[in-house]
Amino acid sequence: MRRNRGAGGAGRYAFRLQEERAAYAFIFPAVACLLLFTFYPMIDAVVVSFKDFNLINPQADFVGFGNYKELFADRAFWDSLLHSFHFAIVVIPAQTAIALGLALLVRRSTRLSGLFRTVYFLPVVIAVGVASTVFRLLYNQDVGLFNALLKLLGLPQVSFLSDPGVAMYGVMILGMWKSAGFFMIIFLAGLNNIPKTIYEAAEVDGASRPRMFFHITLPLLRRTLAFVVVITTMDAIKISGPVFILTNGGPAGSTTTATYFIVQEAFDQMRMGYASAAAMVLFAIVLAISVLQMRAFRTDVEY
């Protein structure tokens, strides 16, 4: 009997061991790639940020906090951070509100709603290069469609991309046009999770539509809202793609965002150490903001 149990135990042990071996083999490629292509570069970014590293001189010297000191005194770097924040501070509330509005409009699962859902989502599948080149033409001051539309409505003409005070808004409009549909889908998923019975009960109690929105929909969407806001923030602060194609950071550097600054320093000026220091600062900011946001949303949930 004892032997039996021992044999059974050994069998199960072998079984477990096999499972464990299989599991490690299955996760190995993924974990190895992640170590090599994400974690190692992250550590290396820290190391390089303390070096006077450029492509021409690979034997870089450690310069301590030299890069950081220079960075904090660099007006262009602060400006680039400011531009990123400007983009983020407008886009986060505006785009989130638009996405939520779209989701509420197409919430019901009728054919017509489904059709509008698809239409609202289409800009998301338009690639960044395509969208940016098209908008560049649409924004054209003399022959662009947007100015023709403004003229039709009797509004003054806008030089979307050549006025330093306006160009960032041109980037924002493009960004929101392209992304709102994506977050609409996430809001729709959140809305679908709210039980219909709650609304039915509220209706019986005679609650008005706005009341239901503020007292049922919004509170129950809090987790989804948190997710959308955190993701939008991260994307917004790192914005770069449209900037490269639409404005090239201009006019007069008015759309040079932090990521654009990093890429320029690294690959145009070849100052990789300096660029890495800027990247570390950007990383710290993004991380701090998302931690703060998640805290903010969590305390709300507890009450």
Binding site: T38, F39, P41, V48, K238, V263, A275, S276, A279, F283
Partner: peptide, 17 residues
């Protein structure tokens, strides 16, 4: 945890790699 590391931040060292 790798989700919090943005590709933009590791752009330079990834290029060096």
């Amino acid at each position: 945890s790798a989700l919090v590391i943005p590709g933009e931040v590791t752009l330079v060292p990834s290029y060096l790699l």
